[in-house]
Amino acid sequence: MSADVLLEVHAVRRYFPIRGGLLQRQVATVQAVDDISFAVRRGETLGIVGESGCGKSTTARLLIHLLEADAGTITLEGRAIGDSSGLTAREFRRQVQMVFQDSYSSLNPRCTVEDTIAYGPTVHGLSWADARKRARELLGKVGLDPELFATRYPHELSGGQRQRVNIARALALEPRVVVLDEPVSALDKSVEAQVLNLLVDLKSELGLTYVFISHDLNVVQYISDRVLVMYLGKIVEVGPVESIYGNPRHPYTRALLGAMPSMDPDNRGKQATLTGDPPNPINPPPGCRFHTRCAHAETCCSAREPKLAAGTAAGDHLAACHMLIPGSGHSAAPAIAA
């Protein structure tokens, strides 16, 4: 397994201090991402889902090194920035690019489409003429006629067109991993489908690896090979897409999937969905962070934090729940194998 791991996140943590008062002293910390580990395999699409504020976007920014991790390491093919392998932040950033959520604010309103795409390559030493040539090629690749679109400004484009430009900009550096942070959530459904298909096509054409972040479970199911479910800065479940959607093992994942609108009238509203908002990440609950909203919570859940584990199931479907860990003290936990 380790051979085909392209990007690995190991025990990464990122807290944001909240300052207040006269002297701007730190009064609290937001535990945006707390001790998460996962691997992105070469050529796969890893979907990351979760509610608002669960740390999805922080994870994305950590992955592309826009944010530094407080603890833990992020390695690209086993090489981390600043270690003996000589991987520089610049080179890392060239190989791991991101498509941002807000297609409007992620494009400079005073720059033409062509210049926006060409800027990245010029930073890495390409001349403006060559970079513009590459920008026009990429515009063609993302389905925009370069003759028509190269010299336009972002406000002259539709949301879908802008997102295509964003994709082209991310691809301009010839990255190996593209982190897509809610790339289609601002688009309407028909355009969303076009952009998703474009992403699928580009992936096979250019041999890319995707980390696809979204709160839309249908989209994640469609595009992902593996899915990672986050809750309050923690990973609660990770596994192959069929396994997660067909056989969710964490109560939170089950609740999330239960909230998915169903096309089948007989299949609606049977499972209890979640109520209320997630707890405040400034003071997350102790133990399992989900226990405040979990229907199966017992005393062990608030006492100890469940580790991400395969439990009794085989394969690479992992979940962090005491109900799956033998000997965890939970009444529903499987017996310890003899």
Binding site: L66, A89, D102, Y119, G120
Partner: peptide
Amino acid sequence: AEFVEAARASGARPVSIIRFHILN
């Protein structure tokens, strides 16, 4: 703005970002 983040994510240095993305 996210376009400045995108510029930083492409590995650009502050002077270049100011000149190309902020000044205009």
